[in-house]
Design a protein around this nucleic acid. Structure first.
Lengths: 146, 146
DNA sequence: TTGCTTTCCTATCCGAGAAGTCGGATATTC
DNA sequence: GAATATCCGACTTCTCGGATAGGAAAGCAA
């Protein structure tokens, strides 16, 4: 169980944009270089973030990307869901063990475990905003463990 | 982010064994058939569970597998860690974005998020035992959401 | 002692999907 | 029109989850 680079890179660039504030649009290529990430890949991720309405783009020379909303209104969950499709993927829904076992009719005592896991993951991630991540590492640490 | 079939199948067969109680050893092949899982694959997973000390095996004719400990002393976390290596894999440790960024020296405000996520996942899973999973689905549901 | 059953263990295969690349179209600025 | 960017699909590469295969060792039973 782990988060993919889509989500991780997505967070990195979102956070990068959050830190830029109102400095005008930031080109994808610049961001990639600054953050040490593959440029073409970053571009693709930004595309997803834009389609999800998290960032806005300005085309042409002097163009680039901006955060579409205020950094305290964008949660980590928002970013991950934009980059990947879900945060935590419950097998019962997506990668069923078998249609029989995982049908609604068939009782399964394991299912509630995954469901609850998803709930807790989402709860945590929805509660952390990009603004929070602009704090120092130790401050974020204190914040999330509370 | 999702759990693999290693973990899911591992849970299914562990639970199966838990339900068998003291009926003597259960052959892997029987279990696989009953649960509708690929036999050879189940065998491999049982191997892992045995090496982790969760199940014991009896070789030869009339052989099979037993739960090595009482079902209330084995947690879902135990099973998943036996089947996969970790429950939640923090990229900072395993699949580093880059050695520079993810070194201890370099501050990273994202890291605490993954760390906390891991903590919460582990907390939940460590708190659910195989004995718990022998209850009805609705009862498990009530239990975990408490 | 000869089968039969079963665990044990390694090696391999296959496909999906993660990770990343490429090429070109379109838009904007200077 | 040259330079800079986004836009977007298609394509490549490679890892790893998921599964199979085959044989060695161990124990039972006749």
């Amino acid at each position: 169980m782990r988060v993919t680079t889509w989500a991780e890179y997505g967070l990195i660039v979102s956070l990068h944009l959050a830190k830029q504030g109102n400095n005008g649009p930031t080109p994808a290529r610049d961001m990639a270089k600054r953050e040490g990430l593959p440029a073409d890949y970053v571009e693709q991720i930004l595309l997803k973030l834009r389609r999800a309405g998290l960032v806005s783009s300005v085309r042409g020379a002097k163009g680039g990307y901006n955060l579409a909303r205020d950094s305290n209104t964008i949660s980590v969950k928002d970013v991950i869901e934009a980059a990947e499709n879900r945060t935590f993927e419950v097998n019962c829904d997506v990668h069923k063990v078998s249609t029989v076992r995982c049908s609604g009719g068939n009782p399964c005592s394991i299912r509630p475990v995954w469901r609850e896991l998803q709930r807790r993951v989402d709860d945590l991630l929805a509660d952390i905003s990009l603004e929070d991540l602009m704090l120092q590492e130790s401050e974020v640490q204190a914040l999330v463990s509370a």
